[in-house]
Design a protein around this nucleic acid. Structure first.
Length: 384
DNA sequence: AACATAGCCAACCGCCTATTC
DNA sequence: AGAATAGGCGGTTGGCTATGT
């Protein structure tokens, strides 16, 4: 179809908007709402096409727009979200109240991309440039991960998790919801992987990609997340990094649920090799403020465990929460987490004890497809 | 001071999808 | 059912400004 019919009409103004035009549009929409955009210019007395009016309203006149420069936190979030969503600017913008997709796109193209490159990170894949150079030695047939693609929200998951290798490895780009097979513990045709361990009380540490000191993600390179889905109120305990991760989860949930809620990510693989990503939301959830967390002083870094060690370690062995964080970081006075989270902490311990008593078989991370690991690492900032 | 270049950003273009007729 | 239309999105352009020569 291409061009809109309205654009063919004569005498329509183009280019920058004058203050008078802005005033007309603002007055009209304030009084009547925009309704059908194609009728707005006529009703507002403007020599513009409806599309142009819509753009002007969304990008400039809207009252809820946040003016001014992006904060460091916003920039960091954009980088993290871009690692997950690629060039899906509208979805990224949905996570930044008061910012437009156009604004974010401009920021990315003019600043963030360059800054990442200077930090040795490839802005397309969010991997170290050295790795990309090695990858480039392999013959590439196509790399459309960051180009516009017609994909459903579910397909987005498989596309964005592992941007560079999706096509190189011939990884299936299309994932249908109907092919999702839930693990009931006995099915031989599929088994749930990795993230599903959040179904049980589980702690997992994330180490974020180092984007360089000039970006300054946080002092603490480690983050931990606690999911306790069995409790009525699930709590995510977090420091700055996992707040970013939780935002990514919000973004994922927005893709799937169309609402920004906290999610439980799950991945499963069916017998035919189709990987299914799923995110389910809790009825109630709460994210602990990172500011409160960090205000209490320097968090002790939890013991570092290399990714390769995770792979060969049954998960339940690491199900032990990094207790030092919660005992030592918790301030003597003041609440950096709520009472509910203390309950959660207790529940974590109780659940763990139950699990140990039941001697549930540990899930071998080596069972996880390496691609899933890579996707997970990209999605959640886990270095490998 | 004059010109060249780079960076930023508002706006346009073309395509896609959903809806309406 | 299919064409027309509208809304939305991402890529790109072009003008303005700042900076460098």
């Amino acid at each position: 179809m291409g061009r809109h019919s309205c654009c063919y009409k004569q005498k329509l103004r183009k280019g920058l908007w004058s203050p008078e035009e802005d005033e007309k549009l603002l007055n009209y929409i304030t009084k009547h709402g925009h309704g059908c955009w194609s009728s707005v210019p006529k009703l507002a007395g403007l020599q513009r096409c409806g599309k142009s009016c819509r753009l002007r309203w969304i990008n400039y006149l809207r009252p809820d727009l946040k003016r001014g420069a992006f904060s460091q936190q916003e920039e960091n979030l954009i980088i993290e979200l871009h690692a997950v969503l690629g060039n899906r600017w509208s979805q990224i913008a949905a996570q930044l109240p008061g910012r437009t997709d156009n604004e974010i796109k401009n920021l990315w193209n003019s600043c963030l991309k360059k800054r990442l490159r200077q930090s040795g990170i490839d802005p397309n894949t969010h991997k170290p440039l050295s790795e990309i150079e090695n990858d480039n030695e392999k013959p590439l047939t196509a790399n459309k991960s960051n180009q516009k693609a017609s994909v459903s929200s579910n397909e987005v998951m498989s596309l964005v998790m592992e941007p560079t290798k999706a096509s190189i490895d011939g990884y299936p780009l299309e994932v249908s919801t109907s092919s999702k097979i839930n693990n009931n513990g006995s099915s031989s045709s599929s088994h749930e992987l990795f993230l599903d361990r959040f179904n049980t009380t589980g702690y997992f540490s994330f180490q974020n990609i180092n984007y360089g000191s000039n970006i300054g993600i946080s002092e603490n390179p480690n983050a931990s997340i606690c999911f306790t889905p069995t409790s009525s109120s699930s709590q995510m305990m977090s420091d700055t990094n996992s707040v970013i991760n939780s935002n990514m989860l919000h973004s994922i949930s927005t893709s799937i649920f169309q609402t920004p809620t906290q999610v439980k990510p799950t991945v499963s693989v069916s017998s035919d090799g189709v990987h299914n990503w799923e995110a389910s939301n809790y009825n109630t959830s709460k994210t602990v403020s990172s500011a409160n967390f960090l205000d209490t002083g320097t968090l002790p870094l939890q013991e570092e465990m290399k990714w390769s060690e995770y792979i060969n370690t049954p998960f339940l062995m690491h199900n032990q929460p990094p207790q030092s964080i919660y005992t030592e970081a918790k301030p003597e006075t003041g609440n950096y987490i709520t009472d509910e989270s203390c309950t959660t902490w207790n529940q974590c311990q109780q659940q763990q004890q139950q699990q140990q008593q039941q001697q549930q078989p540990g899930f071998q991370l080596s069972d996880i497809y390496s691609k899933d690991l890579q996707r997970f690492s990209v999605a959640f900032g886990q270095t490998m």
